[in-house]
Design a protein around this nucleic acid. Structure first.
Length: 291
DNA sequence: AAAAAATTCAACCGCTTATTT
DNA sequence: AAAATAAGCGGTTGAATTTTT
């Protein structure tokens, strides 16, 4: 008999259930090699495997298929997921069609564990905490050395952040985003946090090393849909975000790709607006550099 | 060091849609 | 044309693993 594995691998109504054993996988793979995909109910008849057709199909589609991509979702794939989820909602299989080698199940799991509203990813929260802490420390240091030749970049963005803070009261925020620097904090997925967009808003702008960027926005900012543009180096990219299943208290702000923007782009800028009356709009102006 | 809490993700369920008989 | 069977979809579950206390 093949490994009567512990756990919930059980028999029920004639069908085996629970985790698949290596031997079961082998039987299924051999069946597909011989008969092709489909006709899942005959797997049991032909191979003697005690699994329902439904179970066989699932195992093949989600795990055994040779064209599956294994390993972690890449930052690029993540952007696609975010982008398409904004567009299509929970149409996982539709989204999966744009991600070769990834299954709807995998994408659904990824979304739920990383972006489910009201539950932003631990990684991002950790990175945020690290970022805020570092910023606090920086402020203390620059107070101690007040007058000293502190990094211009830092000064600049602080000044502009102050501008933004006052602008936010009138419903507008304009914030400079500091150039990408090696010292910026990053989270475990390789995200780099560039700068808070607007201090009053609980909102961060994230940027990948490859210069694709998106922002996450938190509850008190938004409850609806938004959209806007960001442009740099002569190319403009539009973005929009739908409202999540009515009355969302949390959603990501949007994303934009600067994929086609290369080399020392200065003065990238964009604007976003959120629909529900009374919610603040913010204008983003970024200064990005790839070196 | 151990226990508890949190996270992950493979696999399940019920329902819908498509295909076959 | 209708019933039966298969495939496909999305939400949910829970054992195993990882992280935190």
């Amino acid at each position: 008999m093949e490994g009567e594995q512990f756990g919930w691998g059980r028999e029920e109504g004639g069908w085996r259930k629970g985790p698949w054993t290596a031997h079961e996988d082998k039987l299924l793979v051999e069946y597909v090699e011989q008969h092709g995909e489909g006709r899942w109910n005959s797997v049991a008849k032909i191979t003697g495997l005690k699994r329902s057709g439904k179970s066989c199909r699932l195992r093949w589609v989600n795990y055994l298929r040779p064209d599956l991509k294994r390993g972690k979702i890449t930052p690029q794939e993540e952007s696609v997921i975010l982008e398409l989820h904004a567009l299509w909602g929970n149409r996982w299989s539709t989204i999966a069609r744009s991600l070769p080698g990834r299954t709807d199940n995998e994408i659904k799991n990824y979304w739920r564990t990383h972006f489910k509203k009201g539950k932003p990813s631990k990684n991002i929260e950790r990175a945020r905490a690290r970022f805020l802490k570092q910023r606090r420390e920086m402020q203390q240091i620059s107070q101690l050395q007040s007058g000293g030749g502190q990094q211009q970049q830092q000064k600049l963005s602080q000044d502009e952040a102050a501008d933004a803070a006052s602008a936010v009261d009138s419903g507008h925020a304009e914030v400079a985003v500091a150039p990408l620097a090696a010292t910026l904090p990053h989270d475990d997925d390789g995200l780099q946090i560039m700068q808070e967009m607007a201090p009053d808003m609980d909102d961060l702008l994230y940027c990948y090393p490859d210069m694709s960027a998106y922002s996450y926005s938190y509850e008190d900012i938004i409850g609806g849909s938004g959209g806007g543009t960001i442009s740099a180096g002569g190319s403009t990219s539009e973005w929009s975000s739908e409202e999540l299943d009515g009355g969302a208290t949390w959603t990501w702000g949007s994303l934009w790709n600067l994929d086609d923007v290369v080399d020392n782009v200065d003065g990238a800028s964009g604007a976003c607006c959120w629909e529900p009356a009374g919610t603040p709009c913010c204008r983003i102006s970024a200064s990005l550099s790839t070196s």
